[in-house]
Amino acid sequence: MPALLGRCIGYLPGAMSFTSKVLFGSVANAQMTGRDYGDNESLMADRFFSAYTAEGPRGSHRFGYTPNGEFVDRPWLADYATYLAQVALVQWMQLNDITAYDDVTILGGRNVLARAIASLPAVNASTLVVTFLTRAQVDPNDIALRVYKYYATFADTNGIINQIGTLAEPIAINLKDAG
């Protein structure tokens, strides 16, 4: 798994999928040889198991699951989006002489968030919505405490194809002799 991470993590979420990657090193010991799991591949999907298989037969990584059943790029995307939003918001607050608790500044923060999230290739930027509350709508205690926690970001991701065809529903290839 560390080698797979090394192969993939240098890209932005949405620019790289964890499936169908092969690890061929220059030395024999670094080369992965995929096994043919045959019908047992369906068990791997059922049990959220990632492995290098002989699919192809190219010894590539399949499924891209984490042990809890999530696809591995999802926490990657979520963590990186959180990181980008944090960096962008802190950078903006550093630039500001003052980040005033007013509606114009709240709109500004909304734009900072939108730009940070939209910069990810995984995100379909045109679907991005950042909701917010105006100063008049927030809890007065939060104004006293100098906390603003009323942004919410919604966006569709473009999605990833991890496998094409399944054992149960293989791709139909119909050929016939001309006659």
Binding site: W92, L95, N96, V104, L107, G108, N111, V112
Partner: peptide, 12 residues
Amino acid sequence: AKVLIGSKLVSL
């Protein structure tokens, strides 16, 4: 109608 520009997002 608000327009905010620049890295500081200053309102026009």
